[in-house]
Computed example of a mutant assay.
Amino acid sequence: MRTIKQQHRAVSAPIDDLVTYRALPTRSVEHLDPFLFLNHHGPQTYKPGNRGLPFGPHPHRGFETVTFILAGDIMHEDTGGHQSIINAGGIQWMTAGRGLIHAEVSSPEFKRTGGPLEILQLWVNLPARHKMTEPRYVGLQEPEIPRISLDEGRVSLQAIAGEWAGTAGAVQPLADIALATVYFRAGGRLALTIPADHTIFCYVVRGQLRVQDQPTEALHLIELNHDGDDLHLEAQSDAVLLLGHARPFNEPIVAYGPFVMNTNAEIQQAYQDYQAGKFGQWRG
């Protein structure tokens, strides 16, 4: 069984009136290759007539964003021509690749009526060979994502990418990345075999769990060593877990603002390309 290296508590990092906890990077952990960044927005309740999410048009290059909508909704638009409104239980998977501009805001309906909101956004690196790939976007509502019932119904797993309990995830990433959202009822148990050379991404969104028989709770990222292939999870209360794994790329990571590349020169080129309009033109 793998051992736990460290538990990292997410830090408060509000954005305007949006409650936000940053789980990665923090002072205690920079990244978990190839997982680069995680923001946990909410939970909070918006009043009717709100401004919604504050993420207006901004560029990206060199990685992928995976957005998990647990409550509320998110409206996406990008210079690749993609548009969608994804509701609670759905996900967005955007491959920035060579570069695009996108906005992630609340729908007009949510801004009008308000309601609960909780959203996670994870940045996943792209290997050097795919950093300049053509951008793409997949937006899926909850019914479009395979759901697996385990432990006599006490565990429900949304298979987003990779293979889970023999079920293929809804998204086929460019790299071999596995991601799932796991919902536990109190007492639910999940045992998985994950290759020892894979990085495990394990973030507790809600509730209390025992991971490798060690207690943890919401807003904690669990960093595990590469010394075994067994992962054991047990819920002490109803809980939600963001779980993933991938083989590390073991490539240089140079991140600056909205760009993640392998060299400083590539970062400078990204800014030049963006300023030259090579990421597309925003309609607004």
Rank of each mutant, 00 (worst) to 15 (best):
L233Q: 00
T113V: 12
S107M: 01
L174D: 05
E234K: 15
V11W: 09
N225H: 13
L122M: 05
S237Q: 13
P34D: 03
A178Y: 00
L120Q: 02
S237T: 15
A103P: 00
I145N: 00
G257Q: 12
Y21A: 06
G56E: 13
A168H: 13
A23P: 09
Q7I: 10
R206P: 00
G277Q: 01
G42M: 06
L70C: 07
R22M: 03
E77A: 14
H102D: 02
S156W: 01
L190Y: 09
N87C: 10
Y21N: 09
V205Q: 07
L53Q: 07
H220R: 11
S149N: 14
H130C: 08
T67F: 11
E217H: 12
Y46S: 10
G72Q: 11
K278E: 12
Q208L: 12
V171G: 02
Y183G: 09
A168R: 15
D227M: 04
F68T: 06
L36E: 04
P57S: 14
R189H: 07
A235E: 00
Q92G: 01
Y256N: 11
G188H: 09
T181Y: 10
T181D: 10
P173C: 01
A178F: 01
H76L: 03
G56A: 14
D229V: 04
Q7P: 07
F110A: 03
R283K: 15
P116E: 05
P108Y: 11
M261F: 06
E144K: 12
V240T: 15
A170Y: 02
